[in-house]
Amino acid sequence: MNAVVDTARRQKEEYTGDADRPLGSYLATLAVYGLTTGALALLARRRGASLHSIGPGDLALMTVTTHKMSRLMAKDPVTSPLRAPFTRYAGTGGPAELSEEVRGHGVRHAVGELITCPFCVSQWVATAYAAGMVFAPGATRLAGATMTAVAGSDWLQLVYARLQRSAVG
């Protein structure tokens, strides 16, 4: 066992150099994701849930919902209390979005990186959406339609603001 631990430490040192990268915490995060996904698949199989293919309409709804939920979780001011234990406020990052710096070490840092990165959190959101399609497709589609409408509204707000600026200037 010591040989495995020594090899892991050596690989971490070779990979990170002097940078503080929480590779062990990333591995733990990956393990949680894998175990959660595996447990959901096992539960679906045991319950005899229908694992049908996702059609183009559902895929479009899932895509826009994943985008909107990921940005909402990672950047929205309203969800900042959920990120606060892992981040520090650093200002605004765009229209209705915050910029935050990750703080801490180890698991705290790894979780902070995950929850402030919409690209990173989107995998978890899409997986949750897929599970919702297996266990509660109607409610999942309703939530997806709601988030898709919010995403469409966001774009309209941005276009409207731009048109206002160009009309004034």
Rank of each mutant, 00 (worst) to 15 (best):
G48F: 07
Y160W: 15
L59N: 09
G104V: 00
Q157N: 14
L142D: 12
Y33L: 13
A31M: 09
G104A: 02
G138R: 12
R88T: 12
A60M: 10
A41M: 11
S122Q: 15
S153M: 14
M133D: 00
T63R: 05
T87V: 05
A126W: 13
T87R: 00
V111S: 02
R83Y: 07
R141H: 10
A167W: 09
T146I: 14
Y89K: 11
P85R: 09
V134H: 05
T16N: 07
L40P: 01
L114P: 02
F135Y: 08
S99N: 12
G91R: 11
S25G: 07
V78N: 05
L43G: 12
T66C: 07
S70P: 02
T29D: 08
L72W: 15
L114H: 06
S50H: 10
G93F: 08
G24I: 04
H109R: 15
P22C: 01
T127V: 06
R108M: 02
R10M: 05
M147G: 03
K68Q: 15
Q123T: 09
C120G: 01
L163M: 06
A3K: 14
T79M: 10
G17Q: 08
A139K: 11
M62D: 03
T146F: 14
G169N: 08
V5W: 09
H109Y: 08
T116S: 04
A143S: 13
A74E: 09
L72S: 04
